[in-house]
């Protein structure tokens, strides 16, 4: 059986998922598509969505991250989409905006650009994909994310090098969570 939902843990007087949405909504992204899975009703009740944002439920969320990415990407219409994990509450508006700005510069030279942050050589999140990769993401058949898509497009892959560990700080364990609150 599964433990408590990490997205509903408390962080800065609200929940982790609220923190993530709040940061993103202040950033330069045009539209936020929130993909819910477990505890969808609670999550949707917590978020006060802006008019341009949407909730999409992924009934197959137990099949892994890919199904949630595909649910969201299917709805996305922009020139690019940023795949954001909701369990990274240390990322703020500036983190997202710096990635977007770097991507926009890169995309002028390469319309198939994919950009990800790298902290001391380690790849973090979120990753931004140009819209040309949408069909490949929707057809992707590995269950736990789109890493192999990046590997297949290394000639379009751009590293955003930084020393900011917020880009690596997701919550996978109780220890991660306790570190977050220190």
């Amino acid at each position: 059986m599964e433990g408590p939902n990490k997205l509903l843990l408390e962080f800065k007087n609200h929940t982790i998922v609220e923190q993530c949405y709040s940061s993103l909504s202040k950033s330069g992204v045009d539209e936020i598509i929130v993909v819910t899975g477990r505890d969808a009703e609670i999550v949707s009740g917590l978020l006060r969505l802006r008019q341009q944002d949407r909730l999409v439920h992924n009934a197959d969320f137990r099949l892994g991250l890919t199904t949630s990415i595909q649910k969201g990407v299917k709805q996305a219409h922009g020139d690019a989409f940023m795949l954001c994990l909701a369990d990274m509450p240390l990322l703020n508006m500036d983190h997202y905006d710096s990635l977007i700005e770097e991507f926009q510069t890169s995309a002028m030279a390469d319309q198939e650009a994919i950009l990800a942050p790298f902290v001391n050589g380690k790849r973090g999140n979120p990753v931004i994909f140009s819209k040309v990769h949408k069909p490949a993401i929707l057809a992707h058949n590995e269950m736990n994310g789109c890493r192999s898509l990046i590997n297949h497009n290394l000639n379009h892959f751009i590293r955003y090098n930084t020393e900011d560990h917020a880009f690596l700080s997701d919550i996978d364990t109780a220890e991660d969570y306790s570190l977050l609150n220190q």
């Binding site: 197959d60 099949l63 892994g64 199904t67 595909q70 929707l138 057809a139 058949n141 590995e142 269950m143």
Partner: peptide
């Protein structure tokens, strides 16, 4: 070794390994 996912609303199907 494959799971077929079918969506009747938009009539799409996809596979997961």
């Amino acid at each position: 070794g494959k799971l077929l996912l079918f969506d009747s609303l938009d009539f799409t199907s996809r596979y997961l390994n």
